[in-house]
Design a protein around this nucleic acid. Structure first.
Lengths: 355, 355
DNA sequence: TTGTAGGCGTTATCAG
DNA sequence: CTGATAACGCCTACAA
């Protein structure tokens, strides 16, 4: 059996209450006693029992992080950020992988949410309705990479990332752009698609070919690569780097040169982006910061462990405005000028274009 | 305030004890009552308070996983496996990233170990002494990727992986092999280095050039690549895929062709291995299984939450023999026959070699 | 088969 | 500033 506060109190010759205060509210206890108690505690190797503390305070000292896929470098990076910030705050992080499944995700939030002080829900795959339900629980919830009415969230500027990418491609001379979108129902995909169309609309002569929804993994990219070629687009924007990498791989093995024949742009700037040749032009997302800010927002916004007082009927303050983080385009080797029109006869029709 | 067992009991018209039994020891309660209680509990949305339960049972329902770097695909994969298996067993996982720092690692084990039923320590960077200390605590500890006297562990067959790689290279005709090792003090690196020398010794005419210790990340590989060239080796084995990828990248950008000039072999078969061109020949490690087996071993070996009974003086049974998982070489494009001797004059001395 | 009662280790609430 | 004392929610002898 480990050493309890009682042991410390007895050994120090004070009451348990005083011992408790000496450790948790030092200013409430006479300096001499305080030091004595602390010394005894240290000497005995006293470690507070978290369960007992939680039972009465209602606080666990744990946060929960739910991500769709731990192996996805995007989420791994966010997890690392969450981890680091939580540790700095003295909190532990319970991590759960939802396997890209909205139902499992909801279940995890329900199951794990009951034993933590707050939940960071990253790129939620669940429906808006499920989100509403989750929010109705008494656990503070923070969304990363998704906005939802009444929920606190930290997001990136999805549309602006696409805008930067499109501007870059446009400047290079591309006019026909393909888009390999994220999973159906993906909030960030919707934002990016929106941004894409808006950006294209503001750039005369631009066409967008929508390649539909693609699994946000390498193989998804491999699968959609042939559609890119068939689309006649000279450049393709992928929903994330994994997809872009898959496209790159498939194009290359088909003999389609990147960027000579087709330019490719990813999203996220995951570490893998520079592993390949040509290195991937991509939209850099401040991943670690996303995680850190998520924890900060959660801790600040969280109506301090309201469980115990929930009956008071005090509704939480309105969710604060989403924290929106900027992104930046990183130009590497996978983008270049589009190929010249195929043959002279056709080229002759281009007389009205600038030389 | 959430619904307690008392509420359920009252609502169901039974005593708290019966309610408790109906849920946790169904066979001890009359079928009719049992069902009634369970129904009421479900209807009220009763969720047992883990803190209260833990306080009395001494079990938390949590495992802790400590890894050196969550962004390293190797650990991400293990984490995913741990995650999945733990969930299947109804356990949650507290994940901590030690940032490749042995001291932080020890501290994390100490801090987090106190609030969980067991700790999975992955590729520990801490010293043997620190490990002994950690083992002395009352938390069941399981090592992944490292063996240590008195500790339960799940490891891979490090030496055999290297042996397979060397045999492959030897068969292709390579005789001078460079080794880009892992971090200084790395247990698995020591095993691989050992296996490398043993394998080389058994293959006549083989030489090994030791390139020393390399940071187990992409940039480490980039940095060591020039040593590979200078070493005059025709093939290089890297401590892991990240390093191999870094080497590949640097060699390629220096104009050294892979595998025509130099063959490269990685270790782990991380997802990134197939993202690059040429695809990486590597030793496949059953990552997810490593995680799953770790949880199983921990749960089975763990002297069920002994905290409460520790005073009885019953020492835990000796740690079981390490679980050793097989690995397999995956041959891809980054290995090939070594370049022919440079010029005719020199080639003439090779008369005694087979055509 | 069921109910009663005690206590797990801590903190909060009072009185002193 | 300090010390009793009462919870917190649950489990588990023990008694009925």
């Amino acid at each position: 059996m480990s050493v309890t506060l009682q042991d410390v109190a007895r050994e120090a010759g004070v009451s348990p209450a005083t011992a408790s205060r000496a450790l948790n509210a030092p200013e409430l206890v006479a300096p001499a006693r305080r030091e004595h108690v602390r010394q005894v505690a240290a000497q005995l190797g006293y470690r507070p029992n978290r369960a007992a503390r939680e039972l009465i305070t209602g606080r666990t000292g744990n946060l929960c992080l739910v991500v769709p896929d731990l192996e996805n470098p995007f989420f791994a990076a966010v997890a690392k950020g969450v981890q680091a910030r939580a540790r700095a705050l003295g909190l532990a992080v319970v991590v759960a992988d939802s396997e890209e499944d909205g139902h499992l995700e909801s279940e995890l939030v329900g199951r794990l949410g009951a034993q933590v002080d707050g939940v960071v829900l990253c790129s939620p795959r669940m429906t808006d309705e499920a989100l509403d339900e989750a929010l109705a629980r008494d656990v503070p919830l923070l969304l990363v990479n998704r906005e939802h009415h009444g929920a606190a969230s930290v997001v990136i500027d999805n549309a602006d990332g696409v805008r930067q990418a499109v501007a870059h491609l446009y400047a290079l001379g591309h006019r026909r752009l393909a888009y390999a979108g994220g999973p159906a129902g993906s909030w960030s995909d919707a934002r990016r698609r929106e941004g894409l169309h808006r950006a294209a609309a503001s750039l005369p002569g631009t066409e967008v070919v929508d390649l539909g929804h693609v699994a946000p993994v390498f193989d998804g990219g491999v699968a959609v690569a042939d559609l890119v070629v068939a689309s006649g687009a000279t450049a393709v924007l992928a929903h994330n780097d994994l997809v872009a990498l898959g496209i790159l791989n498939r194009l290359t093995s088909r003999g389609v040169r990147v960027p000579d024949d087709v330019s490719v742009v990813g999203y996220d700037d995951s570490p893998a982006a520079t592993l390949v040749a040509p290195a991937l032009t991509t939209v850099r997302v401040p991943l670690a910061r996303l995680g850190r800010d998520a924890v900060d927002a959660l801790v600040n916004h969280a109506p301090r462990a309201a469980r115990r007082r929930a009956a008071s009927g005090v509704t939480d303050a309105e969710a604060p405005a989403p924290v929106r983080l900027p992104v930046e385009l990183v130009v590497r080797d996978s983008t270049g000028v589009p190929p010249a029109p195929p043959t002279a006869p056709i080229a002759s029709t281009a007389g009205d274009l600038p030389a």
